[in-house]
Design a protein around this nucleic acid. Structure first.
Lengths: 267, 267
DNA sequence: CGTTTGCTTGAAGTAGGTCAATGTGAGTGG
DNA sequence: CCACTCACATTGACCTACTTCAAGCAAACG
């Protein structure tokens, strides 16, 4: 059933962070956390649930009682259509939070499904309450991360609205590469892409047939190299210029964060 | 477990001119604000700047020092392409905040332009600092509103990725109508649409020619009625079923909000 | 070793784009 | 009151990027 071997996650790459918490290490990349903040983050990863490929982690329409941290594996948020085609709205990599949009509307708007096997750390929604009440700087950090996310989402909307299939594909490959680099800085240009062509098609809003043709064309043009399930980006510059790609993940702006101490207001 | 509050239920001014503080009244629709919270909200609307149609309110690439509340008029966030076509990423109606995504990345990712004349209330970014530090429930409210926004954005991504032109148009009209109803509950099915066909085309990722043909077709099929610049939705049910439209703005979940008093943690 | 799941390829169709011309109403100036 | 203009809307004729359908292939698994 599973044609993939194990997803390679947080193998020790000199970073020195504990493999137990990819989410905490992701956050600490931006700003060192206080002990109190670390405590709150740790509680988001207390529980662990192994999940199989294809498993629905969050069901669309259900009341949103929990959020979750993807600890291992890839997940996607998707919108199913009665009609036929379904659309992947977002790919979640290890260290990212799922279910955040459910905060506002009280139920999950779109289902989240695993595309590889992996491991999810669910935590109750009202854990966020404590973060807003007690560690406002952490709340601000989460907000900042969410807003980077929103920018990336808008970039994707742009590609879907006025990009050709080639441009979308280029943008997709570059974006995934950059995001993987965030947690694996010394990964290089070759990365594991545990998605079937039909999965990519659902991300890009294309058919699997055309995705196949695009990948073939990209390969023939020497833009990429495929050794399934690995992809190597051969000519990033051309891909960037053809898709107008901008890396949105490089840094976040902390200038507006409140100070870590609870009642010390920097204003 | 979850306390939802209906969003409707404020007397609407059918006329069409904004109240003194459309942003505050929009927030108060969700939850009554404490005096302290009101003070912070009021400071977001202290300054006022009249803006002309076509004026660039936020320039892409510039450091994000300010956010703003749209007090009057319509604005759009758009992504320009060297190539040619440009894509509208988001329409901002009165009472909505612009520049929020700039919080995370420290500069404006996409430009914001007025599509009608209007009025913007700019406020400094670090005003958000005070909200996170001192009125956490207001911070949570802003987060909730942003997350509803993100869901709506994902719905749009879905339409752009796997919707036909007809479906996109139907979705667009319904979505705009619902959003306008939020601040004008007794507006009915007829609303002012101050966009040119080319503006709509940029929202939908289509050409103005095709937008024209779609509008003509919709009119001939009796789905809508156009008396420029007004549109009337004649058969909302058909539009809904053909575009799978879901109104995401109806309710907001406050169950996870911290309590209004600063150090009283409801957990 | 047969079955399944996913990849590849060809041929034909279509939704929506492109190009280009014409129509229309709301100013503006004379 | 009429001409002139300018910004948009409308319409027609053709074009193409992508889809659809359908068949064949490869490799992994049972």
């Amino acid at each position: 059933m599973q044609r993939m071997t194990r997803y390679y996650g947080q193998n020790g790459n000199g970073g020195g962070h504990s493999p137990a918490s990819c989410f905490a290490s992701r956050l600490e990349r931006y700003a060192p956390l206080t002990d109190e903040e670390k405590g709150f983050v740790a509680r988001m990863e207390e529980a662990e649930r192994p999940v199989k490929r294809g498993e629905v982690v969050l069901k669309a329409g259900e009341p949103s009682t929990e959020l979750g941290v993807v600890k291992e594996g890839w997940a996607v948020a998707r919108s199913d259509r009665l009609n036929g085609r379904s659309q992947t709205l977002r790919i979640y990599l290890p260290g990212e939070i799922i279910g955040l949009p459910g905060l506002g509307i009280g139920h999950y708007a779109h289902e989240v499904v695993m595309v590889t096997q992996g491991c999810i750390c669910p935590f109750p929604k009202d854990h966020i309450t404590g973060i807003y009440a007690r560690v406002p700087r952490l709340a601000a950090l989460l907000t900042a991360v969410a807003s980077v996310d929103q920018v990336a989402l808008k970039d994707r909307l742009f590609m879907m609205g006025s990009g050709t299939a080639r441009e979308r594909m280029a943008h997709f490959l570059l974006d995934l590469h950059e995001r993987l680099l965030l947690s694996n800085p010394d990964m290089g240009r070759r990365f594991r892409l545990p998605l079937r062509q039909v999965d990519i098609a659902e991300v890009l809003g294309l058919t699997k047939v055309y995705v196949n043709r695009l990948l073939k064309a990209f390969t023939e043009e020497g833009l990429i190299e495929i050794q399934r399930p690995y992809v190597r980006i051969l000519r990033p510059a051309e891909l960037k210029s053809m898709s107008n790609y901008v890396n949105r993940y490089e840094q976040i702006d902390q200038s507006w964060f409140p100070s870590p101490a609870r009642n010390d207001i920097s204003l």
